[in-house]
Design a protein around this nucleic acid. Sequence first.
DNA 1: TTCCAGGGTCCTA
DNA 2: TAGGACCATGGA
Length: 288
Amino acid sequence: MDYSGVEFFADYVIIKDVRHFLPAHIFECGQMFRFSPMGTGYEIFAGDKRLFVEKAGEDVKLFPCTREDFKGVWHSYLDLGRDYAAVCEGYRGDEKLKLGIEHGAGVRILNQQPFETLISFIISANNNIGRIKGIIARLCQKHGSPIEGGYAFPTPQQLRDVPADSYAALGCGYRAPYLEKTVRAINGGFPLDVLRNLTYPDAKRELLKLAGVGPKVADCILLFSLGHSCAFPVDVWMGRIMREYMGEATLPAIQRYAAERFGENAGIAQQYLFFYARENKIKGLSST
DNA sequence: TTCCAGGGTCCTA
DNA sequence: TAGGACCATGGA
């Protein structure tokens, strides 16, 4: 692993001259929901970890963060091993992507914990980011372990006996029974982490067996936590922008088109296009 | 009051 | 297999 440009201190880390790294775009783009603007940076929670992330000039400061935390957790979580300049270079010539890269400069695809991502995106269905954040915060407070400054995301074991009514009381609405069923499946041995090693189609096929997981949620889980950077989640915003490329089209047609046009890093292209769509408030021909 | 949100499930044709 | 109704909730 290349840690050149990284300076380690007792309880913080400085990454020198980081390109393609803007905390606001990384944390507020709808790929994770446990973040708060804090001073000149962001406070984030991931699993049972808490981190402050600050951009100072071209440098990034992470704290509290030991050398072991950085190498064991945050380097991967923040996708610091990927050359985003090279990825963007591959998309030269696409006008919408070019604008998306301008609007969404500095966004990165996080490598989150699969269980947290699974539960979070079941909650995200037909929901808005503000409400999703609130529901997840209440879920952590009620069922997660207290940690410095907040609460850890609940483990599958901590949610083992939580009934649907309890999720509903947190504001999950009709998604509550999906959460109960899916937590039961995970505790029953569903091999969530193994999906990282399957092909994208096989991993997606397995995820679709879980309650509350449809094509879009499955792609979010695959992209944001299982290393399948070809996954191309199509939500209402992406549906709108892809219809600008293709005209009216079905979901399978959109995904085939995206795979051919954007290739193995279609998920990263998707994130830039998501920025483009939201920044330009693109209105859809239809929203499904 | 109505629309909308990083949709999924279930029923019907 | 495709299409559409229905599903909680709260902010705009």
